[in-house]
Design a protein around this nucleic acid. Sequence first.
DNA 1: TTGAAAGCGCTAACAG
DNA 2: CTGTTAGCGCTTTCAA
Lengths: 339, 339
Amino acid sequence: MSQRRASLADLARTLGLSASTVSRALADHKDVSPATKARVRQLADELGYQPNQLAAALRRGRTNTLGVLVPHIRGHFFPLVVHGIATEAARLGFNVMMCQSNEDVDQERRNLDLLMNTQVEGILVSVANTTQDTAHFEEVRRQGVPLVFFDRVLEGFGNEQSSAVSIDDYQGAFEAVSHLLAQGCRRIAHLNGPATLSIHRHRHQGYLDALQAQGFTADPALTITIDMTQAGGAAAAAQLLALPALPDAVFASTDVAAVGAMQVLKKHGLRVPQDVAFVGFSNEVFTTLTEPALTSVDQRGEQMGRTAVQLLHQLLQGETPVPIVLQPELLVRDSTLRG
Amino acid sequence: MSQRRASLADLARTLGLSASTVSRALADHKDVSPATKARVRQLADELGYQPNQLAAALRRGRTNTLGVLVPHIRGHFFPLVVHGIATEAARLGFNVMMCQSNEDVDQERRNLDLLMNTQVEGILVSVANTTQDTAHFEEVRRQGVPLVFFDRVLEGFGNEQSSAVSIDDYQGAFEAVSHLLAQGCRRIAHLNGPATLSIHRHRHQGYLDALQAQGFTADPALTITIDMTQAGGAAAAAQLLALPALPDAVFASTDVAAVGAMQVLKKHGLRVPQDVAFVGFSNEVFTTLTEPALTSVDQRGEQMGRTAVQLLHQLLQGETPVPIVLQPELLVRDSTLRG
DNA sequence: TTGAAAGCGCTAACAG
DNA sequence: CTGTTAGCGCTTTCAA
């Protein structure tokens, strides 16, 4: 049992070659004779030789590794994005080092430091929702490490060493509400999230503008700001039930809030979608499992991940790509189909 | 704008010190005068000095990094496990490098190579469900890299350089079915997954034994083997409806199959849980969103992740920890509560 | 086509 | 308390 891993020098010694030749042989350098290459490769196979990437990276000044920093990987969306990132990174020959900030600025800062220490060649990040102070991102810029934001973008951070990919929340909301109008709904409520997150501001604006585009004006009583949870949705539903006139549709800024509200209204004898139609946002897995299945807006997580890596790749080649805004996709299901 | 990152040597030069002293100062070594430490730290702060961990690791022979290889990070379970791993690794001062095999043996092999090249100190892996040939795991053993399996364990791979943590599927199923019996159910169906996966064999055995423990014998017509999908569950439900006598409970080996079946039986006018009770497996997020909320077996993903890291940590300290089998937890919800 | 030599940035004896 | 020295394992000129 070999205790220590075989090194390049070991191979060289047993073959009676120099380290440089062995190195070149393994790299398939053209100035090495086929015979030598064959000998080297065979021994390498036999010994299960693994090149020490640490040493190679140190010498070469390039690690071939990208850093990823996400708020978390629970739920539906971020796993999809990470999957997209991993796929595209592998395709381009990059390794990926992943960390989570757990929505915490301190962990975000520490993890950015960690990634830079590890000499990643670039960083892909989705900002924690508690982040106010952005000094740690300035530091990344100062160190000259290319940076791509995805989904949660740091506004006003553009420079020639960074880029961003996000989704058009406004457009997603606009289409969702337009669809409800097309289905004949006229009193459309909006379950809105806290305005501290820009996604919620954008989605609400999409709601307002879609109504206006068709000549309707939003009833302020129908916009309810809640925690984007099942309980929040349920509470909003209770509030709607207390109104003099019930809404005939609900657009919720997340799927889970939509379901929370839908359950309460159903329990009160309202039929979905005949009496009240429902649209959520995010296209969570469970949207096909609810009764009826929930119409929702898909955020194209996987494509976002792939795009983010492509942008970073461009930055690494000295280009300065423009930020990309992906178009979401409305997935119509039974909760809005009034046939 | 500093093009190049500051190095230890740079600090040493501008301070008129030797590299070693600067190194020691930054490591808070006790043999450095407080005054010197202060000077060094201040300059390091000013320059935003980031130690090159590559060089440090190469020199030290330790990377402080653990490798993680999961089949995927979609869905509910693996993200939870990864979260547990990340949390515990951070607590113990390890970095984490994560890869996905996408349930593919080739990617699994390549990723194991990658992790070993990167000189991770140990590897945490959940085996791809297509893996038959296990030569690549033998190679990890041969290179002397400590290995911990989680959830999907490679059977018969035990050695003093590896360990494993899994969940007691048998016990989870046993408790689920015992609970149904306690609720008065007598004709309990089992929606079983393909026997190629050991988890399904174990869950089925738990089902059989729970019945037997109470003096009942399983009706073979009530065990239906399906794809563990919503459609599979729906198909199974159709099959159950064709039986001369309907079941009064369904135990499904996954939540999604349970919901698929539940939807169909509800549509046929059966009441849940009065006419037929339902139990799933995995405690997916949506189990609280179905109507009624679905009783399920929680797999303790986060705890599994934390445990896996602890086992690896023990291996790294030269101990040989015994494999751990976590006990799942039955979460009783409305789909089985017959009041 | 191959080898010798230098060095990536850091740490850890060993001396002073 | 601080400096000198010697590498970690690899790649890459430059020279043969």
